[in-house]
Amino acid sequence: MSTRRASDWVLGGLVLGVAALVATLVVSSSWVATDRPAAKRRAELVARLGLTDLALFTEARYTRHPSQADRHAAFQDHPFAFEHFPSGSVLPPRRMP
């Protein structure tokens, strides 16, 4: 009975890993295609209601609607105020043209 070499296990594992990586790409593209009707419905809802932002951060108005907020919004409680909502740290202010 022949014993398996260490390289067989390692090569097998790497091939499996690469195959799984390729599988994520294939699954991703078919998933996106399946989600297309739902994405279309979301886009239609946005157009119908005239929505402007994603409902990701509902804690402060300048993070709920960053595209509608001005640059002072985060610091407008009083002069020299610090921003105090956590999500302001991951959501950069709107870029001015």
């Binding site: 994405a39 979301r42 886009a43 239609e44 946005v46 157009a47 005239g50 929505l51 402007t52 932002d53 994603l54 509608q68 001005d70 002072h72 407008q76």
Partner: peptide, 26 residues
């Protein structure tokens, strides 16, 4: 993925929005 989703769903967002500002606030 979030950026792509935002680009897809916000394609129909209003073309031009006009806000009024008073003393720097909406």
């Amino acid at each position: 993925a979030l950026r792509r989703e935002a680009a897809l769903v916000l394609a129909g967002t209003p073309e031009v929005l006009v806000q009024r500002l008073v003393a720097g606030r909406h």
